[in-house]
Amino acid sequence: MDALELVINRRSQPRLQAPAPAGEALENIKRAALRAPDHAALAPWRFIICEGKGLNKLGAIFEQSAIDNDKSEREILRAPQLPLRAPMVIVITTAYQEHEKVPAPEQYASASCAAMAMQMAAVPQGFQGMWRTGDYAHCPIVKAGLDIDPKDDIVGFLYLGTPAQDVVDKPALDPAGFFRTLS
């Protein structure tokens, strides 16, 4: 698969199973993250890899968040199961740096690019992923449970694993509806 084909045909895959990326495949995914666009070389991102017992710990943090945020009984029961939808979850966070030319939104965008780079690096190695956010990505209880500085943000949870089914093809959007030329 060449790079252009990879980017043009990017899809999320919510149905994931073991194995997760490991060894050289995981190292490639890590290296891809560190090549994200990064104005002033601030490295404004950090990553937490959860697998095995780490997935259960992440689920317990989600459960505590659901309890403390008065979620429904159904949501509380579901919360600890959420990370188990894949054999690996990588939590992508910001690591904001003070810089006069690189505001926080630009640093958040860099961390977002790192998340996409990791997902793209997984695909040619036989893996797939799903980038998820939701309430847990914006919850101070989750941030505290993961020992993330209160000033930083969770950009998302990248679920990674082996596809459990064929990737569903999505209809292509027509670029004409999204681009215009300034003349």
Rank of each mutant, 00 (worst) to 15 (best):
M1E: 03
D2M: 05
E5N: 15
L6D: 01
V7I: 13
I8R: 12
N9V: 08
R10D: 06
R10E: 01
R10C: 09
R15F: 10
A18Q: 10
N28G: 02
K30V: 07
K30G: 01
K30N: 04
A32S: 09
R35K: 13
R35F: 01
W45V: 06
E51G: 07
K57R: 15
G59V: 00
F62P: 05
I67E: 11
D68Y: 10
I76P: 03
A79M: 01
P80T: 05
P83L: 04
M88R: 10
E100T: 10
K101M: 10
P103F: 06
A111F: 05
A115H: 05
A121V: 07
A122Q: 02
Q125V: 03
Q128E: 12
G129M: 00
W131H: 04
W131P: 02
R132N: 05
Y136K: 10
P140K: 13
V142L: 12
A144S: 14
G145F: 07
D147E: 12
D152H: 15
D153H: 13
D153R: 13
I154C: 03
G156C: 07
P163L: 00
V168L: 08
D169G: 06
K170Q: 12
K170E: 14
K170P: 00
A172K: 13
P175C: 03
F178R: 12
R180F: 12
T181H: 12
